[in-house]
Every structure is written in C-alpha cells, then in structure tokens.
C-alpha cells in the first residue's frame, strides 16, 4: 500500500471525528468522535513512522494512547455524574449557564 492510502484514511477518520464533535448532540457520541480523531492521528504517526523508517512515531503513539485513555476516563466520569443528575446525556440539556 502507498503512503497516500494511509494519509487519506487518516484524513477521513479525522474529518468524521471533527464533524461528529461539531454536529452530534449526544455527549457519549461526541466523546467517541474525540477518540476517533486521536486514533486517526495515531494511524498517521504509525504510517509516517514506517515510511520514514524511524521508530519515534510508534513511541509517540504510546503516549497518545495513554493521554486518550486518561481523557476518556475523566470524560466518562463527568458524563455519568451528569446523567445521575439530569437523566440524559444530550447536550441540549446542559444549557443552565447564562449571564
């Protein structure tokens, strides 16, 4: 496979994630879309790492996965706490703050 194949797949995944965060109304789906973006970048790192014959990209992916895991742990905790109070995870319910 060519490098460009990986680039295109990563680009498509990243765009799906980005538009998901922007357009979807369900907090859980938005968190999944965040993960999709991070995984698109991970794919990019691994592909570049193979293409450049250089292992640093693989190493970076370990850090990225750790960060993503921590982020999702905190995110799910917040979503669970919100669900307990509001019985919904739709963002439309989270509009209490205004001036």
């Amino acid at each position: 496979m060519l490098m460009s194949h990986y680039l295109v797949v990563a680009g498509i995944l990243f765009s799906i994630g980005m538009f998901g965060v922007l357009l979807r109304r369900n907090t859980l789906v938005m968190l999944m879309c965040l993960e999709l973006m991070l995984n698109a970048v991970n794919l990019l790192f691994v592909a570049f790492s193979r293409y450049n014959l250089n292992l640093d990209g693989n190493l970076f992916v370990f850090f990225a996965i750790t960060v993503a895991a921590a982020e999702v742990a905190v995110g799910l905790a917040i979503v669970v706490a919100l669900f307990k109070r509001k019985d919904t995870v739709q963002v439309d319910a989270f509009t209490e703050m205004k001036n």
Binding site: L34, L38, E71, I78, V91
Partner: peptide
C-alpha cells in the same frame, strides 16, 4: 459538571 463536559469536549478537540 456542565462546565466540565464543555471544557472536556472543546479541550479534547484542541488536543486532537
């Protein structure tokens, strides 16, 4: 909590 989820989603996008 609402501030937390907003910060998380926007912050996560900036991380990506």
């Amino acid at each position: 909590l609402e501030a937390g989820i907003k910060y998380l989603i926007i912050g996560g996008t900036s991380t990506a």
